[in-house]
């Protein structure tokens, strides 16, 4: 499984990289929505995108609308990971095509549980 981490903060990308690597993902990174689109257009299409909302050049919301406009990218799971936490904004992101939404700050468990909900991480069978 490949995850594309889209966040303008290197520190946040580092936190997310450690979290999803632990869950078995190979990672790719982008500092904004446009860089992420460049990856996709170059054929580096991940299973999962973790997407910040506020970024320079192209924000995460716009990125989601762009991904959803291209049928070739229908298989990508889109998860917002952002400090944006107004009720109305979560509604907007889901309506635009985000599958899940994690609000910063988050614990690694929160990311793991959301990816389980999305069927991207198999829960270990209890002993």
């Amino acid at each position: 499984m490949d995850a594309l981490i889209i966040d303008d903060s290197r520190a946040m990308r580092s936190i997310l990289r450690r979290t999803v690597t632990e869950l078995g993902f190979e990672t790719l990174e982008a500092g904004n929505g446009q860089e992420a689109l460049d990856h996709l257009e170059a054929g580096r299409v991940p299973d999962l995108c973790l997407i910040d909302w506020n970024m320079p050049v192209m924000d995460g919301y716009t990125f989601i609308t762009r991904v959803r406009a291209n049928p070739d990218w229908r298989g990508i799971t889109l998860m917002m990971v952002t400090t944006e936490s107004e009720h109305g904004q979560i509604v907007r992101a889901l309506a635009a095509g985000a599958h899940e939404y994690v609000i910063k700050p988050f614990t690694p468990d929160a990311i793991a549980e959301k990816l389980e909900l999305l069927g991207l991480v198999a829960k270990p069978v209890p002993a």
Binding site: S9, N54, P56, T83, E84, S85, E86, G88, Q89, K104
Partner: peptide, 26 residues
């Protein structure tokens, strides 16, 4: 970068304490 992300996280959550919708700057 790290201090910027810190204020981004705090600021975004403070924004949600207040009536919206509002926009958060970089």
């Amino acid at each position: 970068d790290a201090v910027g992300e810190l204020v981004n996280m705090i600021g975004g959550n403070v924004k949600s304490l207040m009536p919206g919708p509002s926009t958060l700057s970089l």
